[in-house]
């Protein structure tokens, strides 16, 4: 008897992406550039986060035509984003056959309180997190993969660094807690106790955790890997640079060899101009996508 949609099958899919780069694309042509450059998967979108920011208004699931166009263009896995809490967008994406759904704060949330109950789905989900509380709540809801939220579409790595450091440091903290301290920690952080117990025993998250939200250069990608990311998502960083092919290849290589500084130096030579980027203090409260869910 075969079983589909099990935790092992859903989490295992993310395990296969480790050490790789997942790239945002908006059409077949970009998807092919990403695949050619060595991306392990692509995220099919109507607009990359920087353009979502610029456009304003409500950002929704992409037109299924675009998702299908991308699925037909490449043989690597295709992911797509659904709005937080939007069970119908998620079911539609599942029925299209996408390989992973990102329940994403990059889109305008459909539900400001509840996330999707993701363990009901056959397709696996990835969700954003800023700390261990958010990470474990998402796993509790059924996320099979995590990523830092960072601050999408800014080309500024500072928030992704903050979130990765926070998660890693809280894992170390949990490992060092005594059993009788764990329940209070669970209460204080809104973290499911059983998951904390598992993290304490294994010394790591039970799912893969990628970096996302602000990666714009090969050095940024390598930095996130050194901070403990299992891989990276690059949203606007590739197709908002002035040489997508070159940036895509260089970021893939820097992610593989994140501790080879000479190589990263070579990769960074004559790359062209990275996406412009934004300083965090210029964002208003409503500009901050990372605050859209907890």
């Amino acid at each position: 008897m075969s079983r589909t949609g099990t935790d092992r099958v859903k989490r295992g899919m993310a395990e296969m992406q480790k050490g790789g780069v997942i790239m945002d694309v908006v059409n077949a042509e970009q998807a092919k550039i990403a695949e050619e450059a060595g991306a392990v998967a692509v995220m099919a979108l109507e607009r990359v986060p920087a353009d979502i920011r610029a456009a304003g208004g409500v950002a929704r699931m992409a037109d299924p035509t675009i998702v299908e166009e991308v699925m037909n263009a490449v043989s690597i896995p295709v992911m797509a984003k659904a709005r937080i809490g939007h069970v119908v967008e998620a079911r539609v994406l599942e029925s299209l056959g996408v390989d992973y759904i990102d329940e994403s704060e990059v889109l305008t949330p459909a539900d400001e309180i509840y996330h999707i109950k993701k363990n009901d789905y056959t397709v696996p989900f990835v969700c954003g997190c800023r700390n261990l509380g958010e990470a474990t709540r998402r796993i509790g809801e059924g996320a099979s993969m995590l990523r830092t939220k960072g601050e999408p579409g800014t080309g500024n790595i500072v928030e992704a660094v903050r979130h990765m450091r926070e998660v890693q440091s809280q894992i170390r903290q949990v490992v060092s807690l005594s059993d009788d301290e764990l329940m209070t920690y669970a209460k204080d952080h809104g973290a499911p106790y059983e998951l904390l117990l598992q993290i304490k025993e294994e010394g790591r998250l039970p799912v893969v955790n990628f970096a996302a939200g602000g990666i714009a250069t090969p050095a940024d990608a390598a930095l996130m890997m050194q901070l403990g990311a299992d891989g990276v998502f690059v949203g606007s960083g590739i197709f908002k640079s002035n040489n997508p092919q070159k940036f895509a290849r260089a970021i893939v290589e820097a992610t593989t060899h994140y501790d080879d500084y000479k190589l990263i130096g070579e990769l960074s030579k004559d790359l062209g101009t990275a996406m412009k980027g934004m300083e965090m203090s210029t964002l208003t409260e409503s500009d901050r996508m990372q605050d859209r869910s907890q």
Binding site: T4, V9, M13, D99, P124
Partner: peptide, 25 residues
């Protein structure tokens, strides 16, 4: 695709007759 990924018990000649195999794409 991924939604068709599955696990199943396999017989592997000379290795095991009840091997839990995880198939992903």
């Amino acid at each position: 695709r991924q939604r068709e990924s599955f696990e199943a018990e396999l017989e592997i000649k000379g290795v095991a007759d009840d091997f839990e195999a995880v198939f992903i794409r």
